[in-house]
């Protein structure tokens, strides 16, 4: 069973590599397929950082446009995912910089609050989602910058150690050290999920 899953993963990776190679050579439909594969992950990654659906949608659009425009700069198709996440991280960084600058002039805290997560029509869901992100943000703010990035990329964005190293342009051993410290704090803080984790077993 595990072998089957591993074979499927390997096949999927091989397919992605073929798509990336074709997209680099100018095949538009291959790039559209890559968008289909990655846009969900990139959206989640961006949303977890900006906490606004509209802004996340705009940023995801920008990420893929940027990727499409600079595909020729991608040397190794195997690095596509890490490369895409690096573009997304830079877009988020730019967005935050713009937001900070704008907040100097017009945006008040109340206005920002109004743009907070919109989970759906159910107000209970809305509240529960908001509570989760508040707790998560409180925890993540306690970590130093690189630990925050590494922890998010590993457990929220599901990148491998190698992919995180490429995304952040750091060595794998450095990534492991930061991840180790972040997990240690996660354990010591006793981050609660709002339900018994054992239920998931």
């Amino acid at each position: 069973m595990q072998d089957d899953e591993r074979n499927n993963d390997t096949q999927a990776l091989r397919d992605i590599k073929i798509l990336v190679r074709a997209a680099v050579e100018g095949n538009r439909s291959s790039f559209e397929q890559l968008v289909e594969i990655h846009q969900g992950g990139i959206f989640r990654m961006v949303y977890a950082r900006v906490q606004s659906r509209t802004d996340a949608e705009d940023l995801v659009q920008d990420v893929f446009l940027k990727a499409y425009g600079s595909l020729s700069a991608l040397r190794d198709p195997e690095l596509f995912k890490a490369w895409l996440y690096r573009i997304a991280l830079n877009k988020v960084k730019d967005f935050r910089r713009r937001q900070r600058f704008a907040s100097l002039f017009s945006f008040s805290e109340e206005e920002k609050e109004q743009d907070h997560p919109d989970m759906g029509p159910d107000s209970y869901d809305h509240l529960a989602g908001k509570q989760f992100w508040t707790r998560f943000n409180e925890f993540i703010k306690k970590l130093p910058g690189v630990q925050q990035q590494v922890f998010r990329l590993r457990f929220l964005d599901h990148l491998s150690i190698a992919e995180i190293a490429l995304t952040l342009e750091k060595s794998e051993s450095s990534v492991k050290t930061h991840l180790y410290r972040a997990i240690e704090k996660f354990k010591n803080e006793g981050f609660s999920l709002g339900h018994d984790p054992k239920e998931a077993l």
Partner: peptide, 12 residues
């Protein structure tokens, strides 16, 4: 934590 993050992320 990972599951919750996915759960509380809206669909685009």
């Amino acid at each position: 934590l990972s599951e919750e993050a996915i759960r509380w992320t809206p669909e685009p």
